[in-house]
């Protein structure tokens, strides 16, 4: 447990020190979401209708920008092989790094999402639904992204392949995430959608650390 916490805290401190990554991700999210009103026009009804989808796609793409950093730096500087020789099972190493990624790269997006939701004229019920659906659904982005990151860690410029591997697997999260917000805006129960999102997160939590661990073992060889 101490090794797990040490690794989690180290990754979080490193992300804080190398603040450029967080700034870049947040800036991308804000700019990408802000571009939509400029592109589709300022009609408030239209913005409110497309808002949930725009925010979820924006968060998803911003998250995608950071996935290669989950393992890449540790692989390149030799830290990864030292971690593998340590006392922590590789699946827990993966889990610690996924948690650190979610906290440092995804959570800030969720925190700023209500402000962007207001700018997209989202109904107040929709704003809360947006935050809740992002909180429940975005762990899947980090979990699946870690598998993609591990599969492409040994490749130079593997970012495009990583996107191609990961984006199709994000589709279910996107569908249920957006559907939950739309349900809340339409004053319909959003529980079923959130439960499906939660199910996806739990399923990914069970499968993805093992898949990423297997990929990392191959990469280190």
């Amino acid at each position: 447990m101490n090794s797990f916490l040490a690794l989690l805290m180290r990754d979080m401190r490193l992300a804080y020190r190398q603040g450029s990554a967080l700034t870049m991700t947040l800036s991308f999210f804000v700019i990408a979401v802000t571009l939509f009103p400029l592109g589709v026009g300022p009609e408030l009804d239209v913005l409110a209708r497309i808002g949930p989808g725009v925010l979820w796609v924006g968060a998803l793409l911003a998250c995608l920008l950071t996935l290669d950093r989950i393992f890449q730096a540790d692989y390149e500087d030799g830290t990864l092989e030292q971690l593998l020789m340590g006392p922590l099972p590789i699946e827990f190493i993966v889990l610690a790094k996924i948690m650190a990624h979610w906290i440092t790269s995804v959570l800030p997006l969720i925190i700023v999402s209500p402000i962007l939701a207001i700018s997209l004229n989202l109904h107040s019920d929709g704003i809360w639904a947006m935050v809740i659906s992002l909180l429940i659904g975005t762990p899947v982005l980090s979990l699946i992204g870690a598998v993609g990151g591990a599969l492409t860690v040994a490749m130079r410029r593997g970012g495009v392949l990583l996107s191609l591997l990961v984006l199709p697997l994000y589709i279910p999260v996107l569908i249920f995430g957006v559907a939950s917000v739309e349900a809340a805006v339409a004053l319909l129960p959003m529980g079923p959608h959130l439960m499906l999102l939660g199910g996806l997160s739990l399923g990914a939590l069970v499968v993805c650390p093992f898949a990423a661990a297997a990929a990392l073992r191959l990469a280190v060889e």
Binding site: S3, R10, L14, R17, Q18, D77, G78, Q82, G86, P87
Partner: peptide, 21 residues
């Protein structure tokens, strides 16, 4: 490879490995 984090000091790197192991 050095297995060092360049944003950390030498002491912080060693502290991490010490805690980790």
């Amino acid at each position: 490879q050095d297995a060092l984090k360049t944003a950390y000091t030498a002491r912080e790197n060693l502290n991490f490995w010490s805690q980790y192991t």
